[in-house]
Simulated scan of single mutants.
Amino acid sequence: MRNTTLCYIEHNGSYLMLHRTKKENDQSHDKWLGIGGKFEDRESPEECILRETREETGLTLTSYRYRGIVTFVSDIWETEYMHLFTADGFTGTLIDCDEGDCVWISREKLLSLPMWEGDRIFLNLLFDPEHPFFSLKLEYQGDTLVYAAKDGVPLPLD
Results as ranks from 00 to 15, higher is better:
I9M: 02
E10A: 10
E10V: 12
Y15S: 07
L18F: 05
E24G: 11
E24P: 13
N25H: 10
H29L: 15
H29P: 00
K31H: 08
K31F: 10
G34M: 02
G34W: 02
G37M: 01
E43F: 02
S44N: 03
S44D: 06
E47M: 12
E52H: 02
T53H: 01
E55M: 08
L59W: 05
L61W: 03
Y66K: 07
G68P: 03
V70Y: 09
V70P: 12
E80V: 12
E80H: 02
Y81S: 06
F85K: 02
T86K: 08
A87I: 06
T91I: 08
G92P: 06
C97R: 05
E99W: 14
E99A: 13
D101K: 12
C102P: 06
V103K: 13
K109R: 15
K109S: 15
L111Q: 08
L111D: 13
S112T: 15
L113S: 09
M115L: 05
M115W: 10
E117C: 11
D119M: 07
R120Q: 13
R120H: 06
R120N: 09
I121T: 01
I121P: 10
F122L: 08
F122T: 01
N124G: 11
N124D: 13
N124P: 09
D128P: 10
D128Y: 00
D128R: 00
E130K: 14
E130Y: 07
E130A: 15
H131A: 11
P132F: 00
F133A: 09
F134N: 03
F134V: 00
F134M: 01
S135F: 12
S135H: 15
K137L: 15
L138F: 12
E139Y: 06
G142A: 00
G142H: 00
V146F: 10
A149C: 05
V153Y: 04
V153D: 07
P156L: 04
L157S: 03
